[in-house]
Nucleic acid binder design. Structure first.
Lengths: 162, 162
DNA sequence: ACAGTAGGTTCCCTCAGGGAACTGATATGG
DNA sequence: CCATATCAGTTCCCTGAGGGAACCTACTGT
């Protein structure tokens, strides 16, 4: 890939676009969720999501290529494999936690959140909160200024493939 | 929509899937980024992203329907409008910050991050950090247990449309 | 020998994205 | 007064990605 619906997000000079290039295609975040939740085998994921087998094959291959998942044979004779998170993939799960936070807040409605998260450190049901890695105070989109960084040349948001 | 490539993520009993239903389609996060960064008009976004005008029209309509963006006429005669973030949309930008964090770390390479973020509270260049909303300690995918919540019936990950 | 399971692959069909041209309302310049 | 420019879309055709079902290849268990 490196494509995602024809336009190559991976080539853009933007960390959001490049993250989307890895995980932004349809189904990919849900596959990551499943693997994180312990559904590590092809059949298990396919049945859980109801995803087309063809698309699941493509997504798994791409995620492995990108170093997000690791494909491990847990049995030769017969050959059987499972997919596990790499460090890169585990860190990507932070994204899922933030999606959960927003989804719980804005889309769960009356019924409440479908899944609860218990934090090991304190043992309480909780959610993630975004804080500044430097000062520890809350850090949201409205609390920051954007400045050009080193990995930037000509213009900002721009710069697609070729 | 409520569709995203045929399968209806919005109907799933999962906050990740429901968040994806709102913002998961190709281009949507980049449109959100542009609006957040101050590119609020159709022409500006279209030229910045190089997105098809047809698709941009569809995405903007959907994001407005979902209450993420607000469409405002900043001029009658001639009719001209701009798109601004609602509270719901502003909170979605948290997701972008986490994408930036991951993208900077894993995809920026030698060149370094294309954009830097200065936190108002401390004035330093920084990034977001995920912490437990209850105890304040770091909270990542490996630091939590998943439990069934109230908005859950029969099975977990499962439950697509119909 | 037969059924079952895991992990795919192949096929066809439909529908979404890309790209370019076109529209309609207004403003601006000569 | 006419030509050109701007903004915000809309319409068109073409390609290619997703859905769904059937098929395939190893093996295992009975």
């Amino acid at each position: 890939m490196g494509f995602m619906q024809r336009t190559d997000f991976g080539a853009m000079r933007c960390s959001i676009a490049r993250t989307l290039d890895v995980i932004g295609e349809p189904w990919s975040p849900l596959i990551l969720r499943d693997v994180y939740a312990g559904l590590t085998r092809f059949e298990a994921i396919q049945q859980d999501l109801g995803i087309s087998r063809k698309v699941l094959t493509e997504r798994l291959k791409w995620l492995v290529e990108q170093g997000v998942l690791d494909r491990r044979e847990y049995s030769q004779r017969p050959v059987r494999c499972e997919y596990v998170l790499t460090a890169k993939g585990t860190e990507l799960c932070d994204l899922l936690l933030v999606m959960v936070r927003w989804g719980d807040r804005w889309t769960a409605g009356e019924a409440g959140p479908p899944v609860l998260y218990r934090h090991h450190a304190c043992g309480r049901i909780s959610q993630v909160d975004l804080r500044c890695a430097t000062c520890g105070e809350p850090m949201h989109a409205t609390d920051i200024d954007l400045l050009p960084g080193p990995g930037q040349r000509q213009g900002n948001a721009r710069r697609a493939a070729q």
